[in-house]
């Protein structure tokens, strides 16, 4: 048995420890938002977070996830509200076919945790997933917008704390 948290829920799975985390997430835990693209960590469609870090789950053995906290696109936002990245994605109407988009959103959210206000250069260096529909132009705008929304949320929280 391998145990870890997925989107804040404790899960235990009985699988070969070398099974890629992607297939455990998709086929055992039935969370289909994380996609298979290449199986070789070359496209980023399977990106999710392990302890807050962006990980390409198609090439991450599930045994390495023991005791860790995993977040998938399904758990990126809160119960009732979307994550700033998702809000920005909607505002800029980014997705076309949509298949690669969860991976891009997860990669973006992880980047914004480390670099809250990324430059274009930061985006070029950190967001290296593949989108065949070519939504990069809107995605770049959405990433900057997500950073803005993130900053607004931080300010609101600080104000709330001040009042309290």
């Amino acid at each position: 048995m391998i145990s870890f948290k997925v989107n804040n829920e404790l899960k235990s799975v009985d699988v070969d420890g070398n099974t890629p985390l992607l297939w455990v997430i998709r086929d055992v835990l039935d969370l289909k938002g994380t996609k298979f693209g290449c199986g070789k960590a070359a496209c980023g469609a399977c990106t999710l977070h392990v302890d807050g870090e962006a990980v390409r789950s198609c090439s991450y053995p599930v045994k390495n996830a023991e005791g860790k906290e995993i977040t998938t696109i399904e758990g990126l936002g809160g119960e009732a509200e979307l994550h700033p990245v998702q809000l920005a994605w909607k505002e800029h109407i980014v997705p076309q076919c949509g298949y690669c988009q969860p991976g891009f959103m997860m990669a973006t959210a992880a980047m914004l945790n480390k670099i809250p206000q990324p430059t274009d250069e930061d985006i070029n260096n950190n967001i290296i997933n593949v989108c065949r529909c070519g939504t990069y132009y809107r995605m770049r705008k959405a990433i900057h917008r997500a950073a803005e929304i993130g900053a607004e949320n931080v300010n609101i929280k600080m104000e709330d704390n001040g009042k309290g």
């Binding site: 996609k35 998702q86 909607k90 988009q101």
Partner: peptide, 26 residues
């Protein structure tokens, strides 16, 4: 806004590769 926007932003299981049947094999 395109009508599938929300589903595509929350990672809804809408694609062929997301499809399944009970008791399915691979």
């Amino acid at each position: 806004p395109r009508i599938d926007l929300h589903d595509k932003v929350i990672g809804a299981p809408i694609f062929g590769m997301d499809a399944s049947y009970p008791d399915m094999l691979y």
